[in-house]
Amino acid sequence: MTPFNRNFGQGRNTKAVRLDMNWKELTKAGNIYEPGNAATYETGDWRTIRPVWNKDRCIHCLICWRYCPDASIISTDGKFDSFDYKHCKGCGICASVCPVHAIDMFSEDEIDRREEARKNEE
C-alpha cells in the first residue's frame, strides 16, 4: 500500500482551519482533528445577564457545575473556582439551582454602566 503521506489537504496537516484556506488546504471531508476545539470559540458575548459568585455564601456543592449547559463552571480540586465568562451564555440556571443563593445574576448593561461610572470617578 502507498503510505498516507501525499494527501493534498486531506490529512491531519491543518490543525487550525482558516477562512482563507483553499480546498487543497482544508481537512478532508470536513473532519475535525482537534477534539473539543470549540473551546476556542467564544460564546460569552451572547450573554445579557451575568452570573456573579458570592464567595461567602458558596458551600462548594457544585450543583451549578452539574447543571451548566455550557460547561462554564470551572472547579478546582472539587471546589467552585470561577465562571468561564468566555463561554457562559448567561442562561441563569446556575443561579436558579444554587441551594444557598451564592450566585446573583446582573444585567451586563448594568455592569457596563457601573464600570463606566467607576472609571469616571477615578
Binding site: 498516507f4 491531519r12 482551519v17 480546498w23 482544508l26 478532508k28
Partner: peptide, 29 residues
C-alpha cells in the same frame, strides 16, 4: 486509515456541520 474513530490517541469528529464558507471546498476535494 490515517484517521479513524477508534484511534484513542487522536479522536476525530466526522460528519460535521459544514456551512457555505467551507462546504463548497469539500465538494471540490
Amino acid at each position: 486509515p490515517e484517521e479513524y474513530l477508534l484511534d484513542a490517541k487522536n479522536p476525530v469528529s466526522m460528519g460535521n456541520f459544514d456551512m457555505y464558507d467551507f462546504y463548497f471546498e469539500h465538494k471540490r476535494q
